[in-house]
Amino acid sequence: MSAPLLTIADVAVELPTPRGNLRAVDHVDLSLDAGRTLGIVGESGCGKTMLSRAVLQLLPKKAKLTGRVMFDGVDLVRLDKERLRRLRGRDLAVVFQDPMTSLNPVLTIGTQLMETIQEHLELDAPAAKARSIELLAAVGIPAPEQRLAQYPHQCSGGMRQRIAIAIALSCEPKLLIADEPTTALDVTIQAQILDLLAREQRRRHMAMIIITHDLGVVAGRADEVAVMYAGRVVERAPTQALFKRMHMPYTEALLAAIPKLDAAPHTPLPAISGRPPDPTRPLKGCSFAPRCRYAADRCHEAKPELKSAETSGHLYACFHPIQMAEGIGA
């Protein structure tokens, strides 16, 4: 078997804050093969964005990164700035939650697309323009030729995200990281954007990381899911296996908290009480222990390591894993 396209090995990110060191990512291991989709799920602040920025080498200046990020045979952590810059935007592309983060408000859409294409693909202007139009059409933008002359603020949120995706796809990346690409969008537009990503991925045999707080988004779209809590990956499995049998109480609670469309009206939702721990004050034991309904003494004393379940590829970090056969009881 060939090496995975991306291997994240023992990656940790620490940020100095006035309250002390904040461990945003706490020794994470993940890998992803070409053409596959990994979903990263977890609550706000659990470190999803910091992890993806560690992969992209786009961390805040004062951040301290340790570990290795092997992408296509090279360690990005040790790569020089110039080669990194060339890699990003070409083999390694990203789409953020707020498309305005990736778009430049003072440049027309055409300029931004053509600049990226010309820089990375060495095409002349007419060829780059033709390719831009093709890409905008591919991401479902009507009248793409006219759009080239417009500025981002003249487009709706959904359109902007399509344009950001077009730019990300323009150089045929091997890996696309989509950090909450639909969180700011309405459900119908979200469905369109997720469809678009899935379609383009199939066509290009591109690997993709979808970051979201919504288990629903990854259920039908990811091959594998990693659940993060307080900077750590606490459960990881092929999507089918995970939903069939979750082992981590946190994953179970996350799923149970989603309103069910077939529940009777006024059924109380199984909420997770409390909130995640302060990341500048790491807990001695399992970081979910204060909120976990299965927590026992040991959970407050020691940190559970990720270990393998019987199903291959299924890992969980819990002393008292759930042993239920199927589905979720309320």
Partner: peptide
């Protein structure tokens, strides 16, 4: 359309592509 666009947290329920059109 709104109902069909809700992502269902169940991998056996494959999202139907192309249900939502236009803005």
């Amino acid at each position: 359309l709104l109902l069909q666009a809700i992502p269902v947290p169940d991998p056996d329920v494959r999202p139907v592509e192309g249900v939502a059109i236009g803005e």
